[in-house]
Write a protein that binds this DNA or RNA. Structure first.
Lengths: 194, 194, 194, 194
DNA sequence: AATGAATGAGGATTCATTCAT
DNA sequence: GATGAATGAATCCTCATTCAT
């Protein structure tokens, strides 16, 4: 049984382990050894596959962002009206897949990583851009020229809810979190024709 | 060069240097030596006065939170109606004193520190509690039973705007930031009698 | 240069180096770097294998105690009468293997270490217990109920001779040292039937 | 009230504090600050009076040795026969003044200090010399040419009992300790005319 | 006489990373 | 593909000692 094609498996295991460890520790002060051990391999192998610790972090970040993106896209597919699409975007942000303790912890830390690493910053900007354009394209038909401001505000609410969740203890309550954002949305759209 | 009563002076210098360095580096990966050097003293003296790196961080956090608290209190004094008070709170959050690049960077990192340090977490919870109760007492007369939800949402927006600012480059624009939160407020209060 | 199975080799080298360095310096104020350098490796590797300085010390202590135990056991095998066994125990204590300058220096310092480290204390108590029971089982047939007191006294003499040797300069004279203990033994056993 | 003549008072306080601290910690790893604090002054003052940490240690050692010497001299004054004098010497070694936990701890550590510090070594040799000559002058009239060996053995027993006491817990039992040495003495002198 | 202020030097420990096998 | 071996470079923290007042 030749050990071929291990690369994607190993990489995936490391990415997963990275998110878990960052979530567990609560900061980026996670050693490569810890990550590698949790992924069931030596730290040397982790370096072999990723080259550096930063690359491991970035891969983990990409993974989270892509999961997030998939969730949003999936939710948008089944939404027909603009209002439905807005609701779908919000709910996707707080779906059980994204709104888990470890993922929230990882998000917060990736935000910090973006302060230091240009690549991380770029990734985060891409995510922000997508969220923004998704919100905008759904808001424009409803709110017209106010759409820009609304998108900005909605984005801020979503991020803020994430941030606040990071400080809470216990299992995250996605439903309650989504409620905060939906609340905002409803209030803002009240004046516009449905 | 006085040789007595240096303690408060040194401590203040260290606190200031800590905030600057965290803001500059963009993370908590700041060495005591860096901080001490920027504060114009040896790292040994920093330890002499604070005992440990964590204590230095906590002192810096307390400083920021107390500046923030003072700003809010000051703004509240001159506000008469509930609506004025809400506006005052929001504006205080984005006043030039609080909404500086280095302070924003420090905030983000203190959020991370709170994941690890129980004391930091406690401090952050105190800040959240104060903000919440300030918002609530101003919202109740206007919105009654909806006040709770509104306060939660407004708090989230404020934190979210901070978070997003951390990713931007260039000087922070407090006015634009405040606008996002004020927008939210206006939309939410539209239905209530002024 | 084999690259596997280095652990026991490195550990042994570190243990040896530790004893030498403690003996050379004359105190436990020996840095891990000194030890590691004498053992031909980096201090990081020393930590990798032992985890902490205290563990290195304890390993060195265990080594010395086990050498000592082996020497005593070996001597006892070839002794037939109780009197022979007593003599054998005493001579083993001052055999060239145990009664070397560096080992004596290490012993003295382990005694100090036992004041601080519970584990070191435990090791030393084990050694004392063994010595005591060895002496007792050889003394009982000869001295009966007096055996307890004699064992205590003989143990004290042996330790005392070690202690005094630590203060002398030049190569230790095991023969003269043993003589002191044998003297004691003879005097005490004079009254009992051979 | 001019603060004159403080020097001897301060020095005495430091010496006392040194012994207590060494006994408490169980090793020479005692900081000057600890000693000074226990003596009720600043570490700077301790340096002012003694010049260096080693000098403080040496002063403490001298103090203990002089107490010890006084005790022995006092005991010898009231002893008339050689046998009485030997008993007096032994009992003085284990008198409540000398055979206290902290003093025993200090002794053990001074022994270690003597490995490093020539001055400490000299002090210890002087003490040994005195003990030896005291024992010899009392033993010669009884044992003649055997006196040398007996003195050596008796000295070793005394030191050994001290050493062993350092490992025990609880309050030292001077009486039992003295018994061990007296035992030895009686056995050795049995053959000689009283 | 007395001390707070201050630091240089050092030491244990950690960790990302490299390399030989 | 995989890993144990190995280390240089930090980093926090401690402490004896000095100095100005």
């Amino acid at each position: 049984m030749p050990k071929v094609g291990m690369e994607p498996i190993r990489k995936a295991a490391l990415v997963k382990a990275t998110i878990v460890e960052i979530g567990r520790v609560g900061s980026l002060d996670v050693t490569v050894s810890q990550i590698a051990k949790r992924a069931g391999m030596s730290s040397a192998l982790a370096h072999h596959y990723f080259g550096s610790k930063e690359e491991i972090f970035l891969a983990a970040m990409r993974h989270i962002l892509s999961l997030y993106g998939a969730e949003v896209r999936g939710a948008l597919v089944v939404a027909s009206t603009p209002r439905d699409r807005l609701r779908a975007i919000i709910l996707a942000n707080f779906s059980p897949g994204n709104f888990r303790r470890e993922v929230i912890g990882a998000w917060l830390n990736f935000w910090v990583l973006a302060q230091t690493s240009p690549q991380a910053r770029r990734l985060l900007k891409i995510y922000q851009g997508r969220l923004r354009s998704n919100l905008l394209s759904a808001l424009r038909p409803i709110a017209g020229s106010s759409a820009l401001d609304l998108a900005e505000g909605l984005g801020a609410v979503i991020d803020g809810v994430y941030l606040r969740e990071a400080l809470k203890s216990g299992a995250p309550d996605g439903k309650a979190a989504a409620e905060v954002a939906l609340n905002y949305l409803n209030a803002q759209l009240k004046g516009f024709p449905s």
